[in-house]
Amino acid sequence: MNLTSRMTAHFRDAIGVIELSMSDLAEPLSAAVELMFSALANNGKILACGNGGSAADAQHFIAELVGRFERERLPLAGIALNTDTAILTAVGNDYGFEEIYQRQVGALGQPGDVLVILSTSGNSPNVMRAIEAAHDRDMHVVALTGRNGGQVGPLLGPQDVHLCVPDDRTMRIQEVHGLLLHAMCDGIDALLLGDTE
């Protein structure tokens, strides 16, 4: 296979995963948007977290909420839990890496807030503990995973939304996660601006 054919195969593979995701995830994605809009409309906030590339995606998502997405609007309340190096290193050093998000959710989360977690494997211990902390605070969880959801799936309750990308490759899962996050931003803006037709 030459290099151009290899690159073309990436586009075809990505298109296939996006089409499968569209079929599987459009309905729960709408539910996630409504959940987050409800939290924001009732003076709640969105907390987001992940590791590695998923941490970057969490940060990107919150930047779109606090800044703006495609249209001008008021800033929306959101915090990326993976951005404060003092908290991450203090909690990681004193309590362990598994606690870095759990303690922040316990400190910042309020009933009615939404925790958005991103984990391509669904097996990140620090993310799973964040979910447990969110449930302890009567928060909802929107989980973006892949690989059949891993250990995150069983932690979620009927009040939560699971967006599990139907693929096993990290790059494909992260590509769809980016699409899902942008769709969430657009959906929240559409509800805020009364533009849902």
Rank of each mutant, 00 (worst) to 15 (best):
1 M>Y: 01
1 M>G: 10
4 T>F: 05
5 S>F: 05
5 S>N: 12
5 S>M: 09
8 T>F: 06
10 H>A: 00
10 H>P: 03
12 R>Y: 08
12 R>K: 11
12 R>Q: 14
13 D>S: 15
13 D>N: 14
14 A>F: 03
15 I>T: 14
17 V>E: 07
22 M>E: 02
22 M>T: 12
26 A>D: 12
27 E>Y: 14
31 A>I: 05
31 A>D: 15
32 A>R: 04
38 S>D: 15
39 A>G: 08
40 L>Y: 03
46 I>E: 05
51 N>F: 08
51 N>P: 01
53 G>T: 07
53 G>K: 02
56 A>T: 03
57 D>S: 15
58 A>L: 01
60 H>G: 09
68 R>L: 12
70 E>C: 08
71 R>M: 07
71 R>A: 09
72 E>A: 14
72 E>Y: 03
76 L>F: 05
78 G>H: 13
78 G>P: 11
80 A>K: 07
81 L>N: 02
83 T>D: 07
84 D>H: 06
84 D>T: 04
85 T>H: 05
92 G>V: 05
95 Y>M: 13
103 R>W: 02
114 V>S: 11
121 S>C: 06
121 S>G: 15
122 G>Y: 12
125 P>D: 03
130 A>Q: 07
131 I>H: 00
132 E>T: 12
135 H>I: 04
137 R>P: 02
139 M>W: 00
140 H>W: 06
143 A>H: 03
147 R>I: 05
152 V>R: 00
156 L>N: 06
161 V>D: 14
162 H>Q: 13
162 H>D: 10
162 H>I: 07
163 L>E: 01
164 C>H: 06
166 P>I: 11
169 R>W: 04
172 R>Q: 13
176 V>D: 11
176 V>F: 12
177 H>W: 12
181 L>W: 07
182 H>K: 14
182 H>Y: 09
183 A>F: 11
184 M>A: 04
185 C>N: 07
188 I>N: 05
188 I>T: 11
194 G>H: 00
195 D>I: 13
